[in-house]
Amino acid sequence: MLTSLVSYIQERSSSPLSEADLSLLEEAFIPKKLRKRQFLLQEGEVCKYIAFIVKGATRQYTVDEKGLEHVLNLCIENWWTSDRESFHKETPSIYNIDAWEETELLLLPKANGYYERVNAITAFTEMRIKLDDNQHMAAQKRLNMSKNYTADYRYEELTKLYPEFLQRFPQHLIASYLGITKETLSRIRHQSTKK
């Protein structure tokens, strides 16, 4: 499982990983398998891990007072998932993260100083900075699209950026991720097949 993570770091860093770095990664990251619908994190828990997805898919969501789920993130292989606010501030999470498919993860715990030690690896830090920048830009774009663009446009952008989502996640999760109803998504998909 570590091979995927090592490749991911090396692809996003100009610094090499030493043997000592590889040993630390192997020591620090904990392999974890989740069944479909099994939780990695539940609302009210403190997030203790940052997770790298080796195989499978997860969703991060909240549940409102009416029991409706609101999807914040959908994640697949070679993506990271966690509640970073809960992880860093050690406060209860407002999110749930569960596996949408059988999922294999590598968990980086905050406990025992592993997070700080791994962050001291130059290649990991370079990768993390790129990841943080990319995530910030994607969050800005998504917020802008939700405020200023039609549901049709948001769906079209999703199909361009993440076409695999359409095969991996059901319509109701895609609709929630886009901030639209299932009925609106169904209409958009129906119209797009006519084009």
Rank of each mutant, 00 (worst) to 15 (best):
L2F: 14
L2N: 09
T3D: 11
T3V: 11
L5T: 03
S7P: 00
Y8G: 00
Y8L: 12
I9S: 07
I9D: 07
I9T: 07
R12D: 06
S13H: 13
S15R: 11
P16R: 08
S18T: 15
S18R: 06
E19A: 12
A20H: 12
A20C: 10
D21L: 13
S23M: 13
L24P: 05
L25C: 08
E27N: 08
A28I: 07
F29L: 12
P31A: 02
K32Q: 07
K33C: 07
K33D: 03
L34P: 01
K36F: 05
K36Q: 09
K36L: 03
R37N: 11
Q38R: 06
F39I: 06
L40D: 02
L41D: 01
Q42P: 01
E43P: 00
V46H: 00
K48A: 09
K48L: 10
Y49T: 03
I50M: 12
I53E: 04
I53K: 01
V54E: 08
K55V: 07
K55E: 11
Y61W: 03
V63Q: 05
V63M: 00
D64A: 05
G67H: 06
E69L: 07
V71T: 15
I76R: 02
N78S: 14
W80F: 15
T81K: 00
R84Y: 15
R84W: 12
S86P: 01
S86F: 04
H88R: 09
H88W: 13
K89Y: 04
T91Q: 05
P92K: 01
S93M: 01
S93R: 03
Y95P: 01
Y95Q: 00
I97P: 03
I97Q: 04
A99C: 07
A99W: 00
E102K: 06
E102N: 08
T103P: 01
E104Q: 12
E104S: 09
L105K: 01
L105W: 05
L107A: 06
P109M: 05
A111W: 03
G113F: 04
G113H: 03
Y114Q: 05
E116K: 10
E116T: 09
R117W: 06
V118T: 05
A120L: 12
I121P: 07
A123C: 14
A123M: 14
A123N: 11
T125N: 14
M127I: 13
I129L: 14
I129W: 08
I129D: 02
I129A: 09
L131K: 04
D132W: 12
N134M: 10
H136C: 10
A138V: 06
A139C: 08
A139I: 12
A139N: 12
Q140P: 01
K141S: 10
R142W: 03
L143M: 13
L143P: 00
M145K: 01
M145L: 14
K147W: 14
K147G: 00
T150E: 07
T150I: 08
A151I: 09
D152S: 07
R154E: 04
Y155C: 05
E157K: 11
L158M: 13
T159N: 10
T159R: 12
E164I: 14
E164M: 13
E164A: 14
Q167W: 11
Q167P: 04
P170Q: 11
S176A: 07
Y177H: 11
G179W: 02
G179I: 08
I180L: 08
T181D: 07
T184A: 14
S186T: 15
R187F: 05
I188L: 06
R189P: 03
H190Q: 13
H190G: 08
T193Y: 11
K194W: 08
K194D: 04
K195V: 15
K195P: 03
K195G: 14
